[in-house]
Amino acid sequence: MADIIKASQQKLDVLDNVARSGDRRTFLKWAGATVALFTVAGAAGCSDDDTTTNPGTGATLTNDDFGVLNYAYALEQLEAAFYTKVVASTGTGLSADEMKIMTDIRDHEIAHRDFFKAALTTKAIGSLEVDFSSIDFTKRDQILAAAKTFEDLGVSAYNGAGKLLQDANFLLIAGKIVSVEARHAATIRDLINPKNAGIGFAGDDVVDAMGLDMAKNPSVVLAAAKTYIKTSITNNLP
């Protein structure tokens, strides 16, 4: 136990020093206190490399705010890679207007991805290797169906992750992103089924009888996303 407390104190000191190094690092300072508290409590993962950049051997999501942020970073990496591939593809069957929408969404997902990378600094997981071999990028229907899957999954992921965040600043950031993902989801659904009540922008398949959108735990979301991610992710979140 003494070792654990000592290790967590060292970690807190490190994070505190990082935090003092500039305004941009206030992010880490907030999270630092959370990580330290969590470690003192004796829960899993008290070593300093519990969330590390291991591009070769996979990524680990710790059961704390860093883990949740890295989880979001992983999903944004997936989305950014998908739309980057869509926009770079020819013969997709998408109209010029639809391709403009794809380009907008690509830019948003890249903005999200790069934000998390910059915010997490040394705590960020590595770049994920994606696998889109199940998607035919010459077929409009397949592209839009995959986009719908990613966006609805993203909405449910952020909705389910909110309760896992300890820090209100991170919660607000997640809130700022999830509504944009929901705007994407509605737009993609509207391209597939225009102006449709039951299966369109906010269809009965995603919004329940209480008017609530889906909320899913990381383990459920990661299982669904597994088809598209080659990198092994060790998940310690619920």
Partner: peptide, 9 residues
């Protein structure tokens, strides 16, 4: 949050 994203849709 579940209401929030419905409003965004």
């Amino acid at each position: 949050l579940q209401i929030h994203s419905v409003e965004a849709r």
